[in-house]
Design a protein around this nucleic acid. Structure first.
Length: 223
DNA sequence: CTCCTGGGTT
DNA sequence: AACCCAGGAG
């Protein structure tokens, strides 16, 4: 039985958040069993600054049209831009195509599961590289987006919001929370992100619906 | 580190 | 109409 009163027990927090995720996870197409690494990569790039509701239809159309990196690599930039439609930040669409070309040239049209190789791709930074590894390949990685940062800041550090820039200590804390095994790490990544997106939101957090409210250092400090 | 992006929020 | 955001790039 996990001790939920200990705010710095990563094991207990992890298990509780993952159990919550098992019940409350949104069923998004890029999480479906038939997902592909390319589909996951595309979803992460689209999601970088566009809400889920708008990404979903665009993602379906995109993957139907360009199911493999090679398909996108061969498309005309005008078509790519048109298909990107209202997702915003059109340069990201062009970068995604650059990424597809790089996948064809360097990786035989496949998405690599190696962190270094992923990071070297256009438009893929530390967040997306880690996310693709975890969500596409089920591999262990430290996925640290603003959602996870905020959850950790509150639950573990007792502050409302994380520092403006990622600190060394923050990365180490995040590392402590990631289980040693691949599957566990991937589940924690998805679960902690989902908690940040649905419950532990930046403004108006829904602490009443939070599975780890009792263990949350921020809440215990008087929220 | 700072800058950049355009949609979302206030 | 400012200001914020979130991730990548330089």
């Amino acid at each position: 039985m996990p001790d939920l009163l200990d705010p710095v027990a990563p094991d207990a927090v992890r298990e509780t958040v993952v159990a919550w995720f098992d019940v409350h996870a949104r069923d998004l197409p890029w999480r479906a069993p038939d997902r592909t690494p390319w589909g996951v990569l595309v979803s992460e790039v689209m999601l970088q600054q566009t809400p889920v509701v708008r990404v979903e239809p665009a993602w379906r159309a995109w993957l139907a049209r360009w199911p493999e990196p090679a398909d996108l690599a061969a498309a005309s930039p005008a078509d790519v831009l048109r298909a990107w439609d209202r997702l915003g930040y059109p340069r990201r669409a062009l970068r995604l195509q650059d990424c597809a070309r790089a996948l064809v040239e360097r990786h035989g049209g496949q998405v690599p599961d190696d962190e270094e190789a992923l990071l070297a791709l256009p438009g893929i930074g530390s967040y997306t590289a880690a996310a693709v590894r975890a969500f596409a390949f089920g591999r262990r990685s430290v996925v640290l987006d603003t959602n996870v940062r905020r959850v950790l800041a509150r639950v573990a550090e007792g502050v409302a919001l994380p520092a403006p820039a990622l600190t060394v200590g923050e990365r180490r804390l995040a590392e402590e929370y990631v289980p040693a095994d691949d599957a566990g790490a991937a589940r924690w990544a998805a679960a902690s992100m989902e908690l940040g997106a649905l419950v532990c939101t930046a403004r108006a957090p829904r602490c009443g619906a939070c599975p780890v409210a009792d263990a949350c250092a921020w809440r215990r400090a008087g929220s």
